[in-house]
Design a protein around this nucleic acid. Structure first.
Lengths: 254, 254
DNA sequence: CGGGTCCTTGAGGGCAATCAACAAGTGTGG
DNA sequence: CCACACTTGTTGATTGCCCTCAAGGACCCG
């Protein structure tokens, strides 16, 4: 299968992801695609990276949704984050003897793998592009930190509200959600595994959010009826999802 | 104050930090130091980065301990991580309009600031060094992820055990702890703020760990009496703190 | 000695887990 | 077409982990 060097679809996703901070030059995008082996389609529910196995590549997801998680010794699952189109998955896993976490698709997905060696070579050949990737990774770190604060210091109600608002905002930034709603195969079990809650309690929290006219989930579609009020409830600020562009960053010193 | 380009102390710390994955060539180290403004001493309890304020530099801590945290609207504090010598602090904060988190020293500390513009320039001038920094940052991301799992799915007892073991291991890797103990101004309030627990409960958990002959904290010194048993209790694997070296990573493909 | 920080202890309560069913929807094969 | 298994959602009763509130003790330092 030939590499579709810079198909409109894939370029669009990448730019939507990176552009808030750093618009890709067209040539850079094609360089990035040259790094990848051919993209492949993946069925829903398939494991891309498996905890405990060696992993030599990172994966660029251009379409579809995945989760990154760990199964604990007692069988419990903890979901670290939701992987959306434009995200690089497995960057951390490939640094270790064996992958620390597993990654699994939730939907039909398209992804290309970037061998680690190619990624490293990129730093030599295209340093400006490397900066952009560097920044994209650090954004994931911020989301983990916010997630951490939610689990450490917020109630179940606040956590669920925060989680849904973060998903809504991220999907909106990708052009994959409209003003108030998004469509995802989001089970209550997933929410509970991401937020450290039990399934029955997530169910009750969602009922309360529905009763209060804040959120409804129906047919795999999450609708945030009242973003203002829900954000206030969750203490949600979308700032952490919107880093400055490189020009703004250097504006004062360059 | 002149820049002490590559004093033995600072070079040693940096190498100890980066070397597990990527030993610094001597010239690279001096390049890194050239990026920094003069190092300065900081008193205990001083805020290096303040949430809500603009931040144009990242900080390399060469001596001393700090914490990165957020104060929530209700006054609660959540500690995201403990910053040890060799860590780069504030890398995430400087990407945003205003810093998302605060960083404060716990002890007397020495740190140099690296203006963001210099860091970015580094990608052009010394790509190999940029890779090493990139890797160092991704390691922090892993620690956040493990922290997240602990808060999401583990009991108070397991969390405290895990937290102390992580600190012990990190300090050992820096040569700042001996086989079973380390010295830190670690209050029970800090532990509670890092793990999402209340102070009284942390107190009770520590008592139980002491009664079980696993951990004692006395005079700011934490002693892990039985590492094996404590690790089993916490389900602690130090693997996530020990990434592969670049040679091991490329061994199969280069 | 007074004030501050930190540690400790007790009583009581609430948030969320656990356990156990059952309902509802979905896909499969007989 | 229906029986069946399976997943997902829902509800109730009970339990418990951990919080909150409150007070007191230990220690350090000005």
């Amino acid at each position: 299968m030939a590499i579709e060097a810079a198909s409109p679809r894939r370029l669009a996703i990448l730019n939507q992801k990176l552009s808030p901070s750093l618009p890709l030059v067209a040539r850079e995008a094609s360089v990035l695609f040259d790094l990848t082996s051919a993209s492949r389609a993946v069925r829903p529910g398939q494991e891309i990276v498996s905890e405990g196995k060696r992993c030599n590549s990172i994966f660029l997801i251009t379409d579809g949704i995945a989760i990154r998680y760990r199964i604990l010794r007692d069988g419990q699952r903890h979901i670290l984050n939701v992987v959306l189109p434009g995200d690089f998955a497995g960057a951390v896993s490939c640094r270790f003897e064996s992958a620390l976490y597993s990654i699994k698709t939730l939907t039909q997905a398209t992804m290309s793998s970037i061998p680690l060696a190619n990624l490293i070579r990129l730093f030599d050949s295209h340093p400006r592009l490397a900066i952009k990737l560097f920044w994209a990774f650090s954004c994931e770190s911020t989301m983990l930190a916010e997630h951490l604060i939610a689990l450490g210091r917020r109630s179940a109600l606040e956590r669920v509200a925060h989680f849904l608002l973060e998903l809504l905002t991220r999907l909106q930034d990708l052009g994959l959600a409209d003003q108030h709603s998004f469509r995802l195969p989001l089970t209550q079990e997933m929410i509970s595994d991401a937020l450290g809650l039990s399934i029955p309690y997530v169910n009750r929290v969602l009922q309360q959010l529905r009763q209060d006219g804040l959120v409804t989930i129906k047919d795999r579609t999450v609708t945030v009826e009242n973003i203002e009020e829900l954000s206030a409830l969750a203490d949600f600020e979308h700032g952490y999802l919107r880093p400055l562009s490189i020009h703004e960053l250097l504006g004062e010193s360059a």
